[in-house]
Design a protein around this nucleic acid. Sequence first.
DNA 1: TGTTTCCAATTACGCCTGTAATCGATTTAT
DNA 2: ATAAATCGATTACAGGCGTAATTGGAAACA
Lengths: 122, 122
Amino acid sequence: MSISEAESVVMDVLWREHPLSADEVVAALAKTTDWQEPTIKTLLNRLLKKRAIDAQRDGRRYLYRPLLKREDYVHAASKGLLDRLFDGRVAPLVAHFSERRKLSKKDIAELKRLIEEIDRDA
Amino acid sequence: MSISEAESVVMDVLWREHPLSADEVVAALAKTTDWQEPTIKTLLNRLLKKRAIDAQRDGRRYLYRPLLKREDYVHAASKGLLDRLFDGRVAPLVAHFSERRKLSKKDIAELKRLIEEIDRDA
DNA sequence: TGTTTCCAATTACGCCTGTAATCGATTTAT
DNA sequence: ATAAATCGATTACAGGCGTAATTGGAAACA
């Protein structure tokens, strides 16, 4: 059972800082979305049901914290895309962005340095 | 209006070869999915409505061909993921797979060659 | 020409998602 | 102690998606 786009926005808040009360999550999201409070409560409950987050009572309210690690979420999503569109390999994706001229000088320098480092460590 | 996962599987068939009749699409998909014929017809119709494909009558049946280019679809999906998860940059994605030890010797060699080529051409 | 066959179009349906209102219980204030 | 406020839980609802059955009209066959 995987988490949706909107749910991942809520996760982002909790990944950045936790534990947080529902109110604190609502406050954080007010800056970037115009979701109403009940909407965010719903998303928190769905994430609970999916066991992506965990809630512990703190007085009369709950404190939420992530169970799903951001790394794992990012990896599942990235690998899914790579598998579906690029035969599971990273190089064709890089080639794609290159062909689309979507790599800046800076991107290229960054990649070059990174690959050299990876290659050296390997 | 964007095309769904199942719809993209149908698109894959048409990207590979076109134009194709519904029957030919069904035959192609029989190899990789166990979708029933009506399911595939539905997907073709939804793609038509989304103007991702186009149909021209050929006698009593239709021949379908893609309007949406694979390149554009791939780019939208990739850029979406990159923007959401990697600050829109390719290098952090490569770094992610590297840290996860998901890059084989071959992947690294491939990337190295590719980056050098890109860098030379730039 | 009436009947069967073939297709495309229409309709179906349950689940997930985005978005929220309402209910109910618990706490705080009067 | 009763009223008001606060929260979490429950319910809502339309649209998209996966999956498909049914219908209706044209084509082929008998």
